[in-house]
């Protein structure tokens, strides 16, 4: 590992604070998903991905497709901390002329691999990329697709799952944010997804399940996925929506809402003190 686990946890905590600050300044955007996927994105950018922030279009890079574009703040913050652009630019989120659009636009920011927002299209694009790698015999490169559980409601997701399964794509790893919420409520009330594992297995995928907040588990699962050479792999990452901010955790109403200044202050306090486990430094 390039970093120790505690270094990665510290990075994740910094990224969560970035997310709160960005959303507070922007005054709109999604809170729960970005906070829930922070540990996964930290693991991806700081341990797993083959990439070079100084050369975002490096031809030998791994590709990370973000399918559920609304969690863009976590990608932006992680990219900034990884060195793709300055951390101060994060404060331009959702502003006129910003590279950090409300939903990610590939042509605006080097390092974004797709334009996304409308749900269910990311896995198809990742599948197309993995098919291309297979055609070209590029076995050392990897395609990752970060996606949400809610977007498995979309037919397009399953069309892609079928195609990737049919072609037994070895270099494709999907990571589903299994946070059990979507805009209108809990996923199992809106449109039940279970048994999610057997659904994917029946489409020809190898399924791994992990705790999305155990950074080592995320890294291990991605490494394990590389050892599965006969089929694509989906990692069902069980996450807590709003992770790290007590009043946001598990509550679907934070799916598409930003914190107001007071709430942001409280959220930052909780993140600084790791939810009360340690004393705040400057409280």
């Amino acid at each position: 590992m390039k970093h120790t686990e505690s270094e990665l946890q510290l990075l994740a905590n910094t990224i969560r604070k970035d997310i709160i600050n960005m959303l507070k300044t922007a005054g709109s955007g999604h809170s729960a998903g970005p906070l829930g996927m922070t540990d996964v994105f930290t693991a991806l950018y700081f341990e797993i991905l083959r990439h070079d922030p100084a050369t975002p279009d490096w031809e030998e890079r791994d590709v990370l497709v973000l399918s559920n574009g609304h969690i863009a703040p976590v990608r932006y913050a992680t990219m900034a901390r990884a060195g793709y652009f300055s951390v101060s630019e994060l404060q331009t989120l959702r502003r006129l002329g910003s590279n950090l659009q409300g939903h990610p636009e590939r042509t605006r920011l080097p390092g974004l691999e797709t334009t996304s927002g409308p749900l269910g299209s990311g896995l198809s694009q990742a599948t197309g990329m993995a098919l291309s790698l297979k055609m070209d015999g590029q076995q050392h490169r990897w395609i990752y697709c970060a996606m949400s559980d809610g977007e498995t409601d979309e037919g397009n997701t399953w069309e892609a799952a079928m195609l990737a399964g049919k072609n037994k794509l070895p270099n494709l790893t999907a990571i589903i944010d299994r946070n059990n919420i979507q805009i209108d409520g809990p996923t199992e009330e809106i449109m039940p997804l279970e048994d999610l594992r057997s659904k994917w297995e029946s489409f020809g995928w190898h399924v791994l399940e992990i705790d999305a907040h155990d950074i080592e588990a995320v890294i291990d699962a991605c490494n394990q996925a590389k050892a599965v050479v006969e089929r694509p792999v989906v990692i069902i990452a069980h996450s807590i929506p709003g992770k790290g901010v007590e009043f946001m955790e598990y509550d679907y109403q934070w799916h598409g809402t930003p914190p107001d200044p007071e709430q942001a202050k409280e959220a930052l306090h909780q993140l600084r003190t790791l939810e009360g486990e340690i004393e705040g430094e400057h409280e």
């Binding site: 691999e113 269910g120 198809s124 694009q125 197309g128 990329m129 291309s132 037919g155």
Partner: peptide, 15 residues
């Protein structure tokens, strides 16, 4: 699967 048809194509164009 026409939705998958064009989105897969988009991914291939990216490569």
């Amino acid at each position: 699967a026409e939705q998958n048809l064009v989105t897969t194509a988009s991914g291939m164009a990216h490569m």
